[in-house]
């Protein structure tokens, strides 16, 4: 056990040293694309680390895997509609019901797993982060505003349509555009405006049509997860 822990710690330390080295190199060189990628990997590492450190039961692992699969497979029926796909919506409702940690895992798993089949690209880690953050924020919203209501959630899903596109554009902007100023930022983001709008409208539409029913199904399942057998101590 201690050997395994020692190895894990060593791997983590090596990884941390590489990340810090990349961060320093990026800042030294003022290479924003390199810096953006480093920050992305650091963020993903810490989010995964948080999941690893938490106690997770087999039921939760099975559930997250199933929801990640569902979010990924939901891309198929709507493939014909440009940028309208229920993945973001599925991730948001998962995070809303099961909390930020599960929300992050569902989002990042949906991204990485679907791309094992569709093809990995530089977009994969950014999708992992964007969908992961959508799940985390949905969980946080539930914590602070448990009775947010349908209108609030529709607005939340709509906003994430744009936020997702903006996160995805970050790498494109930092890696390939010069100079990095408001003008180039707006030019890069204007190019994806209609795609982001379709995504936002799709998210809002999915919540309006499926939202409350899927949340009900997931909440019912959440109760099932919490069910445990209490032993009769009286004999």
């Amino acid at each position: 056990m201690s050997g395994n822990k020692g190895k894990s710690l060593a791997v983590f330390l090596i990884f941390a040293v590489i990340l810090v080295g990349m961060l320093i190199a990026g800042m030294w060189e003022k290479n924003w694309s390199f810096l953006a990628v480093t920050i992305l990997f650091a963020a993903l590492t810490f989010l995964y680390l948080d999941f690893e450190r938490g106690s997770v039961s087999s039921r939760e692992i099975g559930l997250i895997a199933v929801l990640g699969t569902m979010a990924a497979v939901a891309r198929v029926p709507f493939a014909a509609l440009p940028n309208i796909q229920p993945t973001t919506f599925m991730v948001i409702v998962s995070g809303f019901v099961f909390g930020p940690r599960a929300g992050f895992m569902v989002g990042s798993t949906a991204a990485v797993v679907s791309n094992f089949f569709l093809g990995q690209g530089p977009w994969t880690p950014w999708q992992m982060l964007a969908w992961g953050l959508a799940g985390i924020t949905a969980g946080v919203v539930r914590t602070f505003r448990p009775r947010i209501g349908s209108a609030g959630m529709v607005l939340f899903c709509f906003t994430w349509g744009y936020l997702f596109g903006w996160i995805m554009n970050l790498w494109f902007w930092t890696a390939f555009i010069h100079p990095l100023n408001w003008k180039s930022f707006l030019a890069a983001y204007a190019a994806s405006f209609w795609f982001d709008t379709l995504h936002a409208l799709g998210n809002a539409g999915f919540y309006l049509v499926f939202g409350s029913r899927i949340i009900k199904v997931l909440e019912r399942f959440q109760k099932k997860l919490k069910f445990t057998l209490v032993e009769n101590t009286n004999g």
Binding site: I61, V73, M105, V113
Partner: peptide, 16 residues
């Protein structure tokens, strides 16, 4: 070193 995350992704890859 990250067996829970790897297990989740692995299960989802099998289920997809």
């Amino acid at each position: 070193f990250a067996y829970k995350s790897a297990l989740v992704v692995s299960l989802a890859t099998r289920m997809l």
